[in-house]
Simulated assay, not measured.
Amino acid sequence: MTPPNPWAWLRSHPDIDLVWGGLPTGWRGATDGRTIWLAEGLTQRERRCTLAHELTHIRLGLLGVQSASGEERVRLATARWLLPDLEAVADALADSTTQDAALDLWVTDDILHTRLAHLTDSERNLMSRDTAA
């Protein structure tokens, strides 16, 4: 399976502008629905995941300052978008730490942790079958 590509999604939406920098200290990204700001100095993995997170805000229509539950909804939807193939996740986790697995899966540690923390029962069963094999 080809990994999801937030950059391709952004290219298919020319109405959304991308701006580098201009963020408060400590912020990785932000959006108002028309513009996405990404912090300078992020790794490629961080840029990919931050872009996906901001695009998810747009896709879900959750713009502006979010409640904790709204932000969690965006984090979970982003993790599900970037990690749709649980067999690949199980394979990456089989012989490595979660940090190494995140590297292999081309996501940040927090994206992988979010995905794993919110597995449905059927996803959890699939993961346990894949890791037991």
Rank of each mutant, 00 (worst) to 15 (best):
P3R: 12
N5I: 04
W7S: 11
L10I: 04
R11I: 01
R11F: 09
S12L: 08
H13G: 10
D15N: 13
I16Q: 04
W20L: 05
W20A: 08
G22R: 01
G22N: 03
P24V: 00
P24Q: 14
T25F: 07
T25D: 04
G26C: 06
G26D: 05
W27I: 01
G29C: 02
G29Y: 00
T31G: 06
T31L: 02
D32E: 08
R34K: 12
R34N: 08
T35R: 10
W37C: 00
L38H: 01
A39C: 07
E40R: 09
E40N: 12
G41D: 13
T43F: 03
Q44T: 09
R45Y: 05
E46L: 01
E46F: 00
R48H: 06
C49W: 01
T50I: 00
T50R: 00
L60G: 06
G61T: 04
G61L: 02
L63G: 04
L63K: 04
G64W: 05
V65C: 00
Q66L: 15
S67G: 02
S67P: 03
A68G: 07
S69P: 00
E71V: 00
R73C: 14
R73Y: 04
V74F: 03
R75K: 15
T78Q: 13
W81I: 10
L82S: 03
L82R: 04
L83N: 03
D85N: 12
L86M: 12
E87P: 03
A88M: 12
A90G: 13
L93S: 10
A94D: 15
T98Y: 12
D100R: 15
D100G: 09
A101F: 08
L103V: 15
D110V: 10
L112K: 02
H113R: 15
T114H: 02
L116F: 12
L119W: 06
S122D: 15
S122E: 14
E123I: 07
E123N: 09
R124H: 12
N125P: 01
M127I: 14
S128A: 14
D130K: 14
D130L: 14
T131W: 12
T131M: 15
T131N: 07
A133L: 13
